[in-house]
């Protein structure tokens, strides 16, 4: 098959075209339009007016909320990535040991992932408020509550998903390697850090990539859990963009420009992170 494809470019095109078309319509074209719109003043996609970089200038001239949202989001992404991956890895190690019911527990841990973010935010808000009300406080009483609340919610939701990836990675570590190490006198800790972790490094890069980008892109949970309250103090980047887009007349272009900056930021951070973890992967 491969040979036929290589010999005859027509086939190559034919098979590639549907996916390419879908990719163009669903991603490349809207993306291009999005970048174009960030340089425009517009209300709908039909009446755009080119304004150059003025949208970008406006963001960097005293939009404090955007700056705050960036640091809040960055802090959240870092802490949540660390917490999610450590916990998910520990759970995965536990659930690859030989004892009964591992499949049952894997299912249970994975389940929160099947629920949507809006629903989760709403449910957890009721839970948190139910507890906090006894102290005459609410989740939006101060920004720390909101931050911790978001963290708990995200850990609860994401651990199961990352765990599945780690379980698959752990099962790929050959037993004979561990056995050989044990015969050579390595203890459990040494086996974990010298054998297992280097060998599941591809899973770790995958999971950290997913959780750090998820952390940066977080929107639904942020919207429903705190809505950015109190006073925009728990507003993350995606929510800030959304609010910019809709809360003032004539600010759609600014919101769009923020979205482009957001894309560059997340892309850059993800690339750095991937480079870093991939450099640690064993051959």
């Amino acid at each position: 098959m491969e040979k036929i494809m290589k010999k005859n470019p027509l086939y190559f095109c034919l098979f590639l075209l549907p996916t390419l078309l879908a990719f163009m319509i669903g991603f490349v074209i809207p993306f291009g339009m999005g970048i174009y719109l960030s340089f425009c003043k517009f209300n709908t996609m039909k009446d755009t007016k080119w304004v150059g970089i003025s949208n970008y200038v406006q963001i960097f001239q005293g939009d404090d909320a955007f700056g705050h949202a960036f640091w809040f989001t960055a802090l959240f992404a870092v802490i949540s990535t660390a917490a999610i991956n450590v916990i998910a890895f520990m759970v995965a190690v536990l659930l690859t040991k030989n004892f009964g019911g591992t499949n049952f527990f894997r299912t249970i841990f994975f389940m929160p992932n099947l629920l949507g973010g809006v629903l989760l935010g709403t449910i957890w808000k009721i839970l948190f408020n139910g507890i906090l009300v006894s102290m005459k406080q609410t989740l939006t009483s101060n920004a720390t509550y909101g931050f911790v609340g978001l963290l708990i919610l995200m850990i609860w939701q994401q651990v199961g998903y990352m765990m599945i990836i780690y379980v698959a990675g752990l099962q790929g570590v050959p037993d004979d390697l561990k056995e050989a190490a044990r015969i050579d006198g390595a203890n459990d800790k040494q086996i974990l850090f010298q054998i297992t972790i280097p060998l599941v490094m591809p899973s770790i890069s995958m999971c950290t990539f997913l959780s750090i980008t998820n952390g940066f892109k977080l929107f639904d949970q942020n919207l429903t859990l705190t809505g950015g309250e109190p006073m925009h103090n728990t507003e993350m980047l995606a929510l800030n963009i959304y609010n910019t887009f809709y809360s003032r007349v004539g600010y759609k272009g600014v919101g769009q420009a923020k979205a482009v900056i957001f894309f560059l930021l997340v892309g850059l951070i993800a690339i750095i992170q991937l480079r870093f973890t991939q450099s640690k992967e064993a051959d």
Binding site: P9, C13, L16, L17, L20, L21, M24, I25, V28, I29
Partner: peptide
């Protein structure tokens, strides 16, 4: 080169469909 050609033609086709 060939890939670029394919990409370009696909873009043309898709933008034509779009318009």
């Amino acid at each position: 080169k060939r890939l670029a050609l394919i990409l370009a033609s696909a873009m043309l086709v898709s933008s034509a469909v779009c318009s």
